[in-house]
Design a protein around this nucleic acid. Sequence first.
DNA 1: CTCGGTATGATAGTAACACTATCATAAACG
DNA 2: CGTTTATGATAGTGTTACTATCATACCGAG
Lengths: 230, 230
Amino acid sequence: METHPFANTHLRIELNERLYLRDPQQTDLGRRLMAESIKLIDEIGFEQFTFKRLAIRIESTEASLYRYFENKHRLLVYLVSWYWAWLSYQIRFHTHNVPNPAERLRLMLRILTRGHQCDAATMQVDGAALYRIVVNEASKAYLTKDVDQDNQAGLFREYKRLAAGIAAVVSEINPTYPYPHMLVSTLLEATRKQLFFAQHLPSLTNSAEQKTAEETVYAFLENLVFKALT
Amino acid sequence: METHPFANTHLRIELNERLYLRDPQQTDLGRRLMAESIKLIDEIGFEQFTFKRLAIRIESTEASLYRYFENKHRLLVYLVSWYWAWLSYQIRFHTHNVPNPAERLRLMLRILTRGHQCDAATMQVDGAALYRIVVNEASKAYLTKDVDQDNQAGLFREYKRLAAGIAAVVSEINPTYPYPHMLVSTLLEATRKQLFFAQHLPSLTNSAEQKTAEETVYAFLENLVFKALT
DNA sequence: CTCGGTATGATAGTAACACTATCATAAACG
DNA sequence: CGTTTATGATAGTGTTACTATCATACCGAG
């Protein structure tokens, strides 16, 4: 339950039960729901996405899908949480034997900005599409009138857990830095926003001709964070 | 039409014509639309907000409101743009005779984090409510599948203009800093996000007991930006 | 004072959306 | 073998996001 040493073994991601009505990872329909909703949301955007459309796509029915999630908003929170949990796992996996905290933080930044390299084997999910959803739609998960309720129900646990993990490293690098949590949440948000801007509002970024957006964002964030910590 | 030297004179904020179908600042109904939509969106949130509800509230009709804005998304973009334009004006007004660029940037940060102190006289709009809308909903203005179209139509001009203005000061402080635009857009986004987190997801921030959220966010951002520029 | 445009209101209608309920059925499990 | 359990099929409801049409009230020009 703790570790899965074999590549082939399915990585079991445990999420807050209150995110769903029925666990989509337990059943065939649930897994199709997840895999296809990721593709569909990526294609048409979250506002255009409906359970009806998804049902047609996976040749199921609206009613069946509503048995898994109360509504599409909960599904979004679920998908995003799943991504954060997966990212936490990736980070743990790639940094657990790196003793230098600065080096560990750099590795985390790398993983954050290259979040799409989800090994396809992990689940049947399209990692690149899920990453695009996180970039484009993740903010909508908490920018609602229900934030406080949702938060109390623990729906943002995975995000907060990830942030706390990174903040710990920040404090390890510089224990006197007064804003580790703010720095980390700014970091997490900025990663996505800058990638979004690079694609859609380039005047808000500094895109270098010869570099990819990810590399530029990484360089910017590395510079920002380590200067803040000195 | 160009300048209004008297305090009592209504500040005329010129926005991209493509933001609206009919200029809401020109008519009585338009101004009521603006003022009341701000209050209503603030109260119930953008997803719950409908033209129908607003029409009932201002004792008009749905059809009449649709003559001003294509849909509620355009209205949101308009309101947010209005805020950015107003903020640009505030910044120009308060910094035009400050020679030191570092001091100017600090003033800008102050104005950004205290954006709610909209002098009520400016329009009939509720400045505090509009600021809350900017914090809670502004991201939704561009996080859509239509970003590129909307951007091409110039709907985000005010935001980009504001960012460019601040970026110029950043470059004035340190002309060799390689990421002025990224720093500024990160700054603008982080301001809102951190205020949101302080209110709803405090574990993502470092809230000091004796300080207000605005002061803490200001201190954090000032530290972050000036360290980045040294 | 009349004429013509302009802003608004009143009313109606439509397609899609966001569900909820009920009943049938087939597989899985004990 | 009987009973849960998951799914499908179908129907229905209230709301949303518009669009269309027509009436009316006002306002400025001739």
